[in-house]
Amino acid sequence: MASQLPAVPRFVFTVFEPISLLAGFFPAVFSPDWFITEQIASLTANTPTVSLTENSRVVARQLGNCYGLAFLVAIAVLYSTTEIKVVRNYLVALWIADIGHLAITYLALGHEKAMAIGEWNPMTWGNVGVTLFLCLTRTAYLLGLFGPGRPVATPARKMQ
């Protein structure tokens, strides 16, 4: 199916997004302390230190596992199906999840930190910037703004 998507969404959904999912997987699983601490960018030196527990480390690693699962599902769906309806439904589900992710991150950051774009750390750019980019790309694709994809090549039928 990936070969049937228009060029921009094909690159974004089949290359950029899987790489970004792995970028979330590895630190969450292998460096959970850093992953947890970086979730909300500290804007001042007076921000209290995050208290890390084994519970929070398990949750971070479980989230990392979800990133890994999302990576595998993306590869499985986009590289195996020839049904455009399956791809569209997959992208609609991700679009809804993008909106939820952005809302949850906004609520955690608060309005002031969410609007202080110049103060964002790499984690915030991933949580907000990358997710917003993916959501907008999905929106444009679903609205048909990238144009039609390539038709599915069907094998010629043998005449009897």
Rank of each mutant, 00 (worst) to 15 (best):
L94I: 03
I75D: 05
A74P: 00
R88A: 10
T53C: 04
A108M: 08
S42L: 00
S80W: 11
V59L: 14
G64N: 03
K113I: 03
T82P: 01
S56V: 07
H111K: 12
S51L: 06
A74S: 12
A45C: 05
I96W: 03
V86Y: 01
T49A: 09
W95K: 03
R88N: 14
I117C: 09
K85G: 09
N55P: 03
A116R: 04
L102T: 07
L72W: 04
V73R: 02
T124K: 06
I99F: 11
R57P: 07
V77W: 02
Y67D: 00
A41T: 14
T44M: 08
C66Y: 01
A60H: 02
S56F: 03
E119K: 15
V58D: 10
M115I: 05
N89M: 13
T81R: 01
I117R: 08
L72F: 10
A70T: 05
E83L: 13
G64Y: 05
H111S: 12
A93T: 05
M123I: 07
A70R: 01
I96D: 03
P48L: 11
S51G: 00
E119L: 14
S42G: 04
A60F: 07
I84H: 06
S80T: 14
A70H: 04
M123R: 12
V73L: 08
I40H: 06
E119A: 15
W120N: 08
H101N: 05
A76M: 09
V50Q: 05
A41F: 08
N121I: 00
E54T: 12
I117M: 13
R88C: 11
M115N: 07
A97I: 02
M115W: 08
T47E: 14
A70E: 00
W95A: 04
N46K: 09
A41Y: 10
H101W: 03
P122F: 09
H111A: 11
N55V: 14
T81P: 00
T53M: 03
V59C: 07
L69Y: 11
Y90F: 15
G64F: 06
G118L: 09
A108R: 11
T82F: 10
T124H: 12
Y106G: 02
N46G: 05
L94V: 02
L72Y: 06
A93M: 05
A74H: 06
I117D: 04
S51W: 00
G110M: 02
V59D: 05
S51N: 09
I99H: 04
P48W: 06
P122I: 09
G68H: 01
A60S: 12
N55A: 15
H101S: 03
E83T: 11
V77N: 01
L43N: 02
V86N: 01
I75M: 13
